[in-house]
């Protein structure tokens, strides 16, 4: 007992398992948003792209009988939906905040519409947790780390790939330049529009995969509102993570913990109603934003310098 709280072993393992599960899901969406923002495009449509990925992934998995085809469909749908933002915010140079908000409203609405016939359908197809053999049998660690959905390992892999591409390749250098100083990237002969569209599409695909994680693995099936504002947490997480892969990963685990806790208040004998605890991730989001603003107030911003600024080649 610590502070009058009890920590039963199974509850703690369950909590940490779920923290990684939720964390990996939000990590995917955050990574995607981070890629778009590193290229200079703020996409507030994550919530909508995740909803489309969740419903699209589920529908395709059911219809094809393969969760992997469902996942592929979720990535393609997420990327395609993101291109709406790409068209308005990148190609036409519209306000990125407005376009992104519109994408969220549109994506959530269309997902709910599309999912009408699939609501309550029994999820006969879903991802099966990976069995790593002896690793999975290790007490504690085996259950927490090595019995996760394949999507959790995919998230880790994509994190490494993202880091490598951004920091160790010509394309990543160009993409970051487009986000820091679009005119410089342009003068160096890169297509700022092309780089940004690519980044937005990848961001959408990652968000779509994050959505499919929900509908094919965490809580298989489709219900209206399954994304439940987690797209917004993904956006906040990019700021919390200071646009860096490692810090975004850390933040994802932290928020995963906050998302996993509300369902387990009884196992820990926590006071207050579980409904109050379910606010935790969102309260944490606000707290992170405020803390971030206070810490960064007197420091050069970590944000890409050209974030949110449309690019047009200057002809005076």
């Amino acid at each position: 007992m610590i502070f009058g709280l009890t920590f039963p072993e199974t509850a703690v393992i369950g909590l940490l398992f779920a923290a990684i599960q939720f964390g990996a899901m939000i990590y995917l969406a955050s990574l995607g948003e981070m890629i778009a923002e590193r290229a200079g495009v703020l996409n507030l449509g994550v919530e909508g792209m995740m909803a489309m990925g969740a419903v699209g992934g589920f529908v395709f998995a059911i219809e094809t009988g393969s969760p992997w085809l469902g996942l592929l469909a979720a990535a393609v749908i997420g990327g395609a939906v993101a291109m709406i933002h790409g068209l308005f915010a990148v190609v036409l140079g519209a306000n990125q905040v407005v376009s992104g908000l519109a994408l969220t409203i549109f994506g959530v609405g269309l997902a709910n519409f599309w999912g009408t016939d699939y609501e309550g359908v029994r999820p006969e197809v879903q991802f099966v947790d990976v069995d790593w053999g002896p690793l999975s049998d290790i007490s504690w660690i085996g259950r927490i780390l090595f019995q996760q959905s394949p999507l959790a390992y995919l998230a880790v892999l994509l994190g490494f790939v993202t880091w490598f591409v951004l920091n160790r390749t010509r394309g990543g250098l160009a993409l970051r330049a487009a986000g820091e100083s679009a005119a410089t990237a342009d003068a160096a002969g890169h297509s700022v529009l092309g780089l940004r569209l690519f980044a937005v599409a990848i961001g959408g695909a990652f968000a779509g995969i994050g959505g499919a994680y929900l509908s094919l693995s965490i809580s298989p099936g489709w219900t209206v509102g399954v994304v439940a504002g987690r797209g917004w947490i993904a956006v906040a997480l990019v700021i919390f993570g200071a646009w860096k892969v490692r810090r975004v990963a850390l933040g994802a685990f932290l928020f995963g913990l906050a998302m996993a806790l509300p369902n387990r208040t009884e196992s820990f004998d926590l006071p207050w109603d579980p409904i109050l605890w379910s606010m935790l991730p969102y309260v944490l989001t606000i707290a992170v934003m405020i803390a971030g603003a206070l810490v960064l107030r007197n420091r050069p911003p970590a944000a890409p310098a050209a974030l949110g600024l449309p690019f047009r080649r200057e002809e005076r």
Binding site: R168, R170, A177
Partner: peptide, 9 residues
């Protein structure tokens, strides 16, 4: 090297 680099840096 921005704009004139090898594929992997």
């Amino acid at each position: 090297v921005l704009g004139a680099a090898e594929r992997v840096l």
